[in-house]
Design a protein around this nucleic acid. Structure first.
Lengths: 210, 210
DNA sequence: TAGATTGTTAATCGATTAACAATC
DNA sequence: TAGATTGTTAATCGATTAACAATC
C-alpha cells in the first residue's frame, strides 16, 4: 500500500538497501528474501517488508524479490537518474577530496561547477570540474540551475552562501560545515554531515564500553 | 535519575547540545532554560529535560541551567578530556582533509600518527602528524596504543585494516569507507560516515518536495 | 501439491510530549 | 512571597515486531 507520508527512519534505510542490493547484483545474485536481506543488514525481515510496503509491492509470494528489479525500484524511489545537478562551494581540502574521490554521477548527480573566494583558484579545473570565483555564483546559476549546493566552506561563510544558493533556486544544501543552517534556508532542505557529532558519539561509545 | 542504559537517540543529541552550549558560552550567556535551549535546537523543552535526566540533575528549579556548568557536564558525559588517542589510515584527499582541517584536539582526541601504503609517503608529516608505512602499524600500536582508528582508505582495504586495528587494541573505528564493517570488528564500536547515504537521502527529499 | 514467502493487520515496544508537584 | 522552571511520572504517539491469510 503506497503511503504519502514516509518517516525519516524509513528513508534513511533506503540507501543501505540500495547499497546492499547493488552488491548482490554485482555478485550476480538473482533473488533475495526479506529475511536474507535482513540478515545482511542487521534488520528484521518484518521491518524490511514493512519499509518496502510504503512504496509499493515489489516481491512475489513464495519467491522473494528479484534483486535487480528491487534495486532499480529503490533507485527510482531515491530519485537517482532524475537529472539532479550540483555545484560545490569551497575548494579547500575537503572540497577537493569530494571533487577527486566522490562519485557524484554514481548517485545521480551531475556536478557542473565549483566556486571559491580565492582569486587564484578561478579558472582552474579539479577532477574535470571548472572552478569559478564565488562572485559569479548568481550569474552562473541563472544560466545553469542546480538542484543542490555542496557547502565545504569555513563556518563563517556558511550562512551567507547558503542563503545565496537558496535565492538562486537551489532546492537542497549538503552541509559539511559545523553551522546549523535549518533556520536560515527558507524552503530548502538541509542535509548535515557533522564530522564532530559523529566523532563525539564514537567517543561516548568507547568510553561506556565495559 | 541516572540511567544505566541510554538510547542511541539521546546520545546523538548530546553533541548538538554541546555545540549549542559552546556557542552560548562563547557569547557569554550565563543561564539558559530548557525551553530556550529547545527553541535553539528545534526540540521541545520536555525532551531536553528528559534527555539530561538520563545522566543526573544539572539544573535549578525556577532558574534553569548554568550554561558553562552544563557544557562541562556534557563534555564529561561525552568523554572529552578522557585522553583518547587516534591514528589515521589512508592519506589520500579525504585523509589529508581531516588531518589539515579537523580539530581532533577540540573534541578530546590526540591524533598521534597516520599510515599509508604508498612508500613515498612514509616519513613525511601532514599538519604536524607523522606518516608511517602501514606495514609498521602493529609495531607502532604496540608502543603507542590508540583508542580509535580513522579509516580513510579505499573500500577494498577496509576490512583487513579494520581487523588489524581491532587486533591491535583499538576500541572504535571511525569509518569513512562505504564498506559495512559491523560484522567484521568483534567487540569494537564502528561509527560510519557514509557520504553516499547522506547524499541519497538529500536527493530523495528534494525529489519529494511539492 | 507442499513449502516458502509476501503484504498487511494487530500487538508490542520505545520514544516523545504533557502535566504537575517540588522548590529555587 | 509570587513567578519560573526543574525533575519525574503519566499519557500519547510512532516505530518495530509478530502473526497470518493469501498465493506463488
Amino acid at each position: 500500500m503506497k503511503r504519502e507520508y514516509v518517516s525519516g527512519a524509513v528513508i534513511r534505510r533506503l540507501p543501505r538497501y540500495y547499497r546492499h542490493l547493488t552488491e548482490l547484483s554485482g555478485a550476480n545474485v538473482e533473488r533475495v528474501s526479506s529475511s536474507a536481506l535482513g540478515k545482511g543488514l542487521g534488520l528484521t525481515a518484518s521491518q524490511i517488508r514493512q519499509d518496502l510496503s510504503c512504496f509499493g509491492e515489489f516481491g512475489q509470494q513464495g519467491y522473494g524479490y528479484k534483486v535487480e528489479k528491487l534495486r532499480r525500484e529503490i533507485a527510482d524511489i531515491l530519485g537517482i537518474d532524475r537529472g539532479h545537478t550540483a555545484v560545490l562551494l569551497g575548494t579547500g581540502n575537503l572540497g577537493r577530496a569530494l571533487l577527486n574521490n566522490f562519485n557524484f554521477k554514481k548517485y545521480g548527480f551531475q556536478l557542473s561547477a565549483a566556486f571559491d573566494i580565492v582569486p587564484e583558484r578561478a579558472g582552474i579545473e579539479i577532477a574535470g570540474v571548472p572552478v569559478y570565483h564565488v562572485d559569479t555564483l548568481e550569474d552562473y546559476l541563472s544560466q545553469t540551475p542546480a538542484s543542490i549546493g555542496v557547502l565545504t566552506v569555513p563556518k563563517g561563510a556558511a550562512v551567507e552562501l547558503a542563503q545565496r544558493l537558496v535565492r538562486s533556486g537551489v532546492k537542497g544544501i549538503w552541509n559539511f560545515t559545523s553551522m546549523e543552517l535549518g533556520a536560515h534556508c527558507g524552503g530548502a532542505v538541509v542535509e548535515n554531515v557533522h564530522f564532530a557529532d559523529s566523532l563525539l558519539t564514537l567517543g561516548y561509545m568507547i568510553s561506556e564500553e565495559p
